[in-house]
Design a protein around this nucleic acid. Structure first.
Lengths: 214, 214
DNA sequence: TCGTAGTAACTTACCCGAGAGTCATATCGA
DNA sequence: TCGATATGACTCTCGGGTAAGTTACTACGA
């Protein structure tokens, strides 16, 4: 007579499957509480497995986080570069980028939260990855912002720098606001962004007024 | 013959003075590394005293942080309300508010960093304080944003909500960017903000175009 | 001008719990 | 029966918090 509760031993889950399952759960938990505030035991419990299994698969808490971060950043950067490659310019490009991000995060927002986790470790692999992710996004943002500033005749390097920082956080705050309102469809949020940009710039989005993306 | 290194016992510093000194040092360290990443021992070392003295004065790590946060939020909210009371409207009010914050933080930016520390505890007194600070700022921001949206005929409650979030982060990112560029004079940064707003809105600041503050 | 007692300021050396990480062992499918 | 999958029960370090003792300033009586 075997107990209904299996106490140890294989559960017949293949290594690759288990790995994916852990990554998905870990991403969700890291996304909710942040790296610093979640323990490996939390993740193990959420995944219905034991702590050593995680160490067996990922080596360390940082290693696990790094994998989540890698998935998150490649998902986001991939989407944003795809939107950029669409060829839209200015305001339209900004809206297309936002729309792409909303769609790719629909019903699975943890990649955004993980990629923007303020409690992520600064050193080692996660820190490098985070830095690379930020630099790439900033690069893309800088393009669009540069066009906008050039139009106004402003060519100060620090102005461009500051404006890029501002645009990045605008983009980020729209996505974060949407993440905090679960159940709102991507199209609905995209429409909202269009309205808001229209209200600020006083133009309709098909105008080729230059506005940053990314 | 007394040793040149005093090992324990009073150093002749009055309680009130010591308290102020610890608060200033703690604010700086909390501001640099964030609440979660700084230990009480770090602060003690930076202040040149021992850990128990901090507990004697402030009861707990959270208690110490709460005092720093209290000072920071009252400084910032005080300044922002003062700017609001100046009576400027729209873009001019936004610029006046930014200018006030730059001036009050000049050469002492930790209050901003502490008040915006993403690793601050969410529960208990610090959490309450942080929440109150955020709500107050949001209230002020909502005023100006509401005017702007009303102009465009947009009256959706969630639009207002999202736009308020965006404006708050724009404000925040300008201040944070400035904090990350030490040595830049408040007037210089204010001028920069004016240029940037001009580039975005395509208007000069004395236009009474409605734009949020706070 | 000296003890000397009282008190406020301060430190050393410790406790203790949380959480990262490890080891020996158990179970199962082929 | 062998190797892959899995776990219970540990160790160890870090950091918040404390108990108990040390030093110096002050007041005051002789």
């Amino acid at each position: 007579m075997t107990s209904s509760v299996r106490r140890s031993g294989t559960k017949g889950v293949a290594r690759a499957d288990r790995e994916q399952q852990i990554l998905e759960v870990a991403g969700r938990v890291f996304g909710e509480r942040g790296f610093a505030a979640t323990s490996v035991a939390d993740i193990a419990a959420a995944a219905g497995i034991s702590k050593p299994l995680i160490y067996n698969y990922f080596g360390s808490k940082e290693g696990l986080f790094e994998r989540c971060l890698r998935e998150a950043s490649s998902l986001l950067i991939g989407e944003i570069e795809r939107s950029a490659a669409l060829g839209a310019v200015g305001l339209a490009r900004a809206l297309a980028t936002l729309d792409g991000v909303f769609r790719v995060l629909d019903d699975r927002t943890w990649p955004w939260r993980v990629a923007n986790d303020p409690t992520a470790p600064v050193a080692d692999a996660p820190g490098e990855l985070m830095g690379a992710y930020r630099r790439r996004l900033e690069e893309l943002a800088r393009e669009g912002v540069g066009e906008l500033l050039a139009l106004s005749g402003a060519d100060d390097a620090l102005d461009l720098d500051a404006m890029t920082a501002v645009w990045s956080t605008v983009f980020g705050s729209l996505v974060t606001w949407w993440c905090d309102h679960p159940g709102m469809a991507p199209e609905e949020m995209s429409a909202r962004c269009e309205r808001l940009f229209g209200a600020v710039f006083g133009v309709s989005p098909d105008t080729d007024r230059t506005v940053p993306s990314g």
